[in-house]
């Protein structure tokens, strides 16, 4: 019997070696001007990127919503009366986990703890509900906020897909 030796596909090779497939170490960096049209564009791009982890419809909707909150905060608060750049970094940490960083070089947050309280808002004219941080916290597994007055703010969010449901936590 003659067998033609087929070259192993990359994934098969990695699976055999026990390491995660190379294509899972994916990363995307994005810079967007602080125009409100980019809220929807950022959501769409993140949604396409996260789709490689095969999320459920609900997981994807949660992530899109959290991203929308962080990007909108850059536009509405950080660059309130100015224009600036929003920096987004997406990184796949493992087969089920995505990390999303959203950073601005805007005004910064004076008191992060107060800012994160549900219903707290510094914008009284814009019909803000003050629920942005609450949405990010409850729709993602982890939320870190670092901010420096006059220098900007960085939001880091992590979500492990499937995790919340299996362990019954949010």
């Amino acid at each position: 019997m003659t067998t033609t030796k087929k070259p192993m596909t990359e994934t098969a090779e990695k699976r055999k070696s026990g390491r995660p497939p190379e294509n899972l170490k994916n990363e995307l960096r994005l810079e967007l001007p602080s125009n409100s049209i980019n809220e929807g564009i950022a959501r769409s791009i993140v949604s396409v990127f996260v789709s490689q982890l095969d999320p459920t419809f609900e997981e994807l909707a949660d992530i899109k919503c959290a991203v929308s909150e962080a990007v909108t905060n850059c536009i509405v608060h950080a660059y309130r009366d100015t224009h600036g750049t929003i920096y987004i970094t997406l990184k796949i940490l493992d087969e089920k986990t995505v990390r999303i960083e959203i950073r601005d070089r805007g005004c910064g947050i004076e008191d992060i703890k107060t800012a994160m309280q549900p219903l707290y808002t510094t914008d009284s004219e814009g019909e803000r509900s003050g629920m942005g941080f609450t949405v990010m916290e409850s729709f993602m597994d982890r939320l870190f906020v670092v901010s420096s007055l006059g220098r900007g703010t960085k939001i880091t969010m992590v979500k492990t897909l499937g995790d919340g449901r299996i362990r019954g936590i949010k």
Binding site: C65, T72, G126, E127, S129, G132, V135
Partner: peptide, 12 residues
């Protein structure tokens, strides 16, 4: 799709 801005719209 709706985020907290939609919530603000409804409450308003």
């Amino acid at each position: 799709f709706m985020d907290s801005a939609g919530l603000g719209l409804i409450l308003g």
